[in-house]
Design a binder for these strands. Structure first.
Lengths: 134, 134
DNA sequence: CTGTATCCATTAGGATACTG
DNA sequence: CAGTATCCTAATGGATACAG
């Protein structure tokens, strides 16, 4: 029963499918990092920016707005001067955190294997190129 | 103990960090779909292309090459004419499958909540805009 | 401090045509 | 069938300047 013809687990791969749209938004470069960093902490804009190496002010703002719109992150503005804005995961965001953490953990656990696979692949490719150009 | 100051779980967020590079490659638009589709099935190029709505020939090729290079997918060429090329997950790829599936499952389970959060956010934004433009 | 707005470079990625 | 190569557009995202 390794692959019946009806495929019980198959999911919708159409482009307009909700799940794919949400996946695209969540699985992007910065969102993963933001969610991973906000586990049971509440961080200010500048703190997030300092923690995430390489993020521009613009992209951090854009990312946080998306996450807020999707109900994954809470934004709290303290009416003081200078402004103080804090971000934290919503309860929905916290349910996602576990999944993302498992992705991060997997990557950490297998980075060596992947690095080796890449080297092997590149070596094979180089040899093949050499065989073609004698 | 909701947030100690040393943060035991904190991970490396530097741009040149291996984990971040691998995450970026795995968590992209097409890779997730390909891995999800290849669970204990072996599919031909055209079959994958047909299953994944909206993918171009070029992007499917590029994606499959990356996954192959990273050791997540096996490519088997049958020397027949017309050519027959089949793709399947490697054992490494299968270990990743569970994690990705959990991401997909999470998204499916919470898509309604997210849709509602978006509507609420957009409504609030519209009201705010109206208040500014009287 | 926490943004928004603008401009611009880079990259991703689609369309098309051609090949083994 | 399963690609590769080329061209070209659209989107991503950085840098900078400015505002509340």
């Amino acid at each position: 029963m390794d692959h019946g013809d009806a495929d019980p687990f198959q999911w919708d791969t159409r482009e307009d499918c909700q799940v794919r749209q949400i996946l695209d938004r969540i699985a992007d470069k910065w969102s993963l990092l933001v969610i991973a960093l906000l586990e049971n902490r509440r961080l200010r804009f500048t703190e997030l920016r300092r923690e995430i190496d390489g993020v521009s002010q613009r992209m951090l703002t854009v990312t946080l707005r998306s996450l807020e719109r999707d109900g994954l992150v809470n934004r709290t503005v303290h009416p003081v001067v200078p402004p103080r804005v804090e971000y934290e995961l919503t309860s929905l965001g916290r349910t996602l955190h576990a999944t993302i953490q498992s992705l991060v953990t997997w990557t950490e656990a297998h980075q060596e294997e992947i690095a080796q696979a890449r080297t092997a692949y590149d070596t094979r490719a180089a040899e093949a190129a050499e065989a073609t150009t004698p």
